[in-house]
């Protein structure tokens, strides 16, 4: 009984806050204008001499991000080797 009352209160709080946040979302299909997007679209081809804007963002403007992804893959290979190695656990 006490648990369900607590659950109901928590549910009301979560739903209330989410409902309030739903009001602030921009309408579906109308994207917010962000200065960063416009900057990429207008200047990437001239600045970086590349036709593929997605690649220019992934490997140049946000290259540090891709370095993290490559490190994640390296860590995955290391952990697979650690799990499937020969010789047990000692």
């Amino acid at each position: 009984m006490k648990k369900s009352v607590l659950f109901l209160i928590a549910l009301l709080v979560v739903v209330g806050t989410l409902w309030g946040a739903l009001d602030g979302i921009h309408p579906f299909g109308e994207v917010d204008k962000a200065p960063m997007d416009d900057y990429y679209i207008e200047n990437a081809q001239r600045e970086r001499n590349v036709n593929n804007l997605v690649t220019s963002v992934v490997f140049d403007y946000r290259g540090f991000d891709t370095l993290g992804e490559a490190a994640v893959l390296f860590t995955a290979v290391c952990s697979v080797l650690a799990v499937f190695r020969k010789g047990g656990y000692d």
Partner: peptide, 10 residues
């Protein structure tokens, strides 16, 4: 033959 380091990093 364009795009500089992007191709190298690819």
């Amino acid at each position: 033959n364009s795009s500089g380091t992007i191709a190298v990093m690819n």
